[in-house]
């Protein structure tokens, strides 16, 4: 399996979890490496993704300076979960507000480590 296909499969796994709307692997400069969306995504979701894209650099700097592995935001009725993959990539998972964040963070952490092994 080539690495793009592998990463894409891991991102797709995440959107099969209950209440997850999208999973995106960002480079810290805001470029998207891979992404996966639920079939019926909304304008609000796209607006939140846009916010992630614009802020991922700032978020990653913040995470690095505070030695954080995970950061969660709540905005536009979505929960946004950032997980450090490696020095240059961040796994971002967007879910609706009903999501069980504890369970989601367990799987997102696992996925971030698997994705790191592909890069």
């Amino acid at each position: 399996m080539n690495y793009t296909k592998g990463i894409s499969s891991e991102l797709e796994d995440l959107i099969y979890l209950e209440d997850v709307e999208a999973s995106i692997l960002f480079r810290i400069d805001g470029n998207v490496v891979e992404s996966c969306f639920n079939e019926n995504y909304s304008q609000e979701l796209l607006r939140t993704v846009q916010w992630c894209k614009a802020n991922v650099e700032k978020v990653s700097l913040e995470m690095r300076s505070n030695n954080l592995n995970k950061v969660t935001y709540e905005l536009n009725d979505f929960c946004v979960l950032f997980f450090v993959v490696n020095n240059v990539s961040i796994l971002t998972t967007l879910a609706n507000q009903n999501v069980n964040l504890s369970l989601l963070s367990i799987e997102a952490k696992r996925k971030s480590q698997i994705i790191a092994s592909y890069l």
Binding site: D13, Y16, L17, L103, L104, I106, E107, K109, R110, Q113
Partner: peptide, 14 residues
Amino acid sequence: FPGVATSNGLPTTQ
């Protein structure tokens, strides 16, 4: 079980 794990693998919920 909502989560499962082994000594050689991170816990998974899926």
